[in-house]
């Protein structure tokens, strides 16, 4: 079958050039205002943290530092007093890391396996269990705070890193399990049927088939958890006691409890130091985060 090729049309229809319209201007103005709303305080925060106290006392908060100095950063990290101890934020930073890793690994590992079991294996009472998880996800932390304190005291971990990590793990599990379960529910049922006939092993199917398909959702959950655990204040201040306070609690003590003049530059440097880790995670993993949220079903 041959079709005689007609010559390409000589006239290229000129496309009208795009003009900025009224509604785009409105959107642009709104976006610019929103950007200013966030970036102006951030700008003040950053420049103040590099100023000397002498310059800060002059009161020109928008001016750039006359002398760029890292003194405030170093002081906030190493020497600033938080409560009675004067070791700077580094204590809190280490504590936060020590809280972050166990709770991150435990909460993701347990809820991924639970979600996998609920989504792909026939589990008795799975529907009721899911409903319960759904309810649990909406219980405000403050309501169960006191019983949880009693539990951790009885476990003998109250006031340690482990109490904070344990509470983070427990509180995150309902939502994470629901997230994993919904993600795994979209895996074509025939794949799991084939795997059951091929291998039949719960763990082997999880490790060899399901886990490699979970990259997107793992990134999403990872970012969610890192941010929420790192930024948490209430759980840290309640369960951490004096020795296991995370960085946020450390920062709050440093800023609220001051003797003498308020060292704005130190406070701002400390605030930035506390905020940098989750920001870094966003910059590194942000692209995958969007992909993970956009990706629904896993195609076979």
């Amino acid at each position: 079958m041959t079709v005689s090729a007609s010559p390409a049309p000589a006239v290229l229809f000129p496309r009208p050039s795009k003009r900025i319209r009224g509604r785009s201007i409105a959107v642009l103005v709104f976006l610019a205002m929103a950007a200013l709303f966030f970036s102006v305080p951030l700008y003040v925060l950053v420049v103040t943290s590099f100023k000397t106290m002498d310059q800060i006392r002059e009161g020109a908060i928008f001016s750039l530092p006359e002398v760029w100095t890292f003194d405030a950063w170093r002081y906030a990290w190493d020497e600033a007093c938080s409560g009675l101890t004067c070791e700077g934020l580094k204590r809190g930073f280490v504590n936060s890391l020590e809280i972050l890793f166990p709770s991150l690994i435990a909460s993701i590992a347990i809820s991924a396996v639970t979600g996998y079991a609920l989504a792909l294996w026939s589990v008795r009472w799975a529907g009721g269990f899911l409903f319960l998880l759904f309810l649990c996800a909406f219980v405000p932390f403050q309501i169960i705070m006191y019983p949880l304190i009693v539990i951790t005291v009885n476990m003998g971990v109250y006031g340690t890193i482990w109490a904070v990590a344990f509470i983070h793990t427990v509180l995150a599990m309902p939502v994470l399990t629901l997230i994993f379960r919904n993600y795994y529910k979209d895996i074509p049922p025939e794949i799991i049927k084939a795997a059951i006939m091929d291998s039949g092993s719960f763990w082997r199917i999880f490790v060899e088939i399901i886990l490699p398909m979970s990259g997107n959702i793992l990134i999403v959950v990872l970012i969610m958890q890192i941010t929420s655990i790192w930024n948490d204040y209430l759980i840290g201040v309640t369960f951490g006691g004096l020795g296991a306070q995370p960085m946020t609690v450390n920062l709050a003590n440093m800023v609220t409890v001051t003797t003498g003049t308020v060292s704005y530059n130190v406070n701002m440097a400390a605030a930035l130091q506390t905020a940098i880790p989750p920001l870094a995670i966003y910059f590194v993993l942000g692209k995958f985060f969007v992909q993970g949220i956009a990706a629904g079903a896993v195609k076979g």
């Binding site: 794949i191 084939a194 795997a195 006939m197």
Partner: peptide, 13 residues
């Protein structure tokens, strides 16, 4: 052994 309608191949392997 079974062959499925949608092939059911393991996508990451």
């Amino acid at each position: 052994a079974m062959v499925f309608q949608s092939y059911a191949l393991y996508p990451t392997k």
